[in-house]
Amino acid sequence: MRRGAVGVAALLFAGVLIGALLGLPAPGAGLPPLVTAQMGNSGVTHPVTAVLLNFRGYDTLLEVAVLLVALLGLLAVQRSERAVAPGAAVEPVLQTLARRAAPLMVVVGVYLLWAGASRPGGAFQAAAVLAAGAVLAHLARLLPAWSAPRAWLRTGITGGFLVFLAVAVALLGGGALLQYPPAHAGLLILLIEAGLTVSLALLLAGLFLFLSEEGTRR
């Protein structure tokens, strides 16, 4: 009954939506000319990075806050007495592979961070690769699941966000929140991205490792 009603509503909605999309007039020039005109003042040479970290850098600041909120929510529903012990079973092939892959993943992560200024890449991509390395190591039982976050982990997780906030506030003196001076924009963006890479890697890894029951003892 309910399934049927939702199905009919979805079909109707899809029809209206597709009709509306097909009825759209030809697009105007939009924002790309504006982005191109200001690229020289952005401190980076890749347009998406310029939008992400400079023109709409405030979105990115709040997006890191969203990730922190998700991790906090995850920790808040965790049992507090979680005890973590290394798993028993050893999987030699997987472990060897993970040991070989780990250094490569670190190199790729650092490269992605550096490349972000001029070509596809950046802090989020680098952090995703590093976090994937941590998850791989965990699945190969080289890295135990995380229980309650210790002080060093809390520092690592919030560090990047706090650096981002501190830079945003420091720039208040020069005009507005997050208003980079064009001469130093490149350096400041690299500083923020480096901090974010470490924090986001720990954060993304945490979303998996705090949740994992692999190798935990209840």
Partner: peptide, 29 residues
């Protein structure tokens, strides 16, 4: 639609993906 690449929505999509990752993690927890 016009053929060219608009970096503004590309950056928005990156933000949107990260938000979706966060929401998914909380839901899974």
């Amino acid at each position: 639609r016009g053929g060219g690449v608009d970096p503004v929505p590309q950056a928005m999509v990156l933000t949107g993906i990260v938000v979706a990752v966060a929401a998914t993690a909380l839901a899974l927890a």
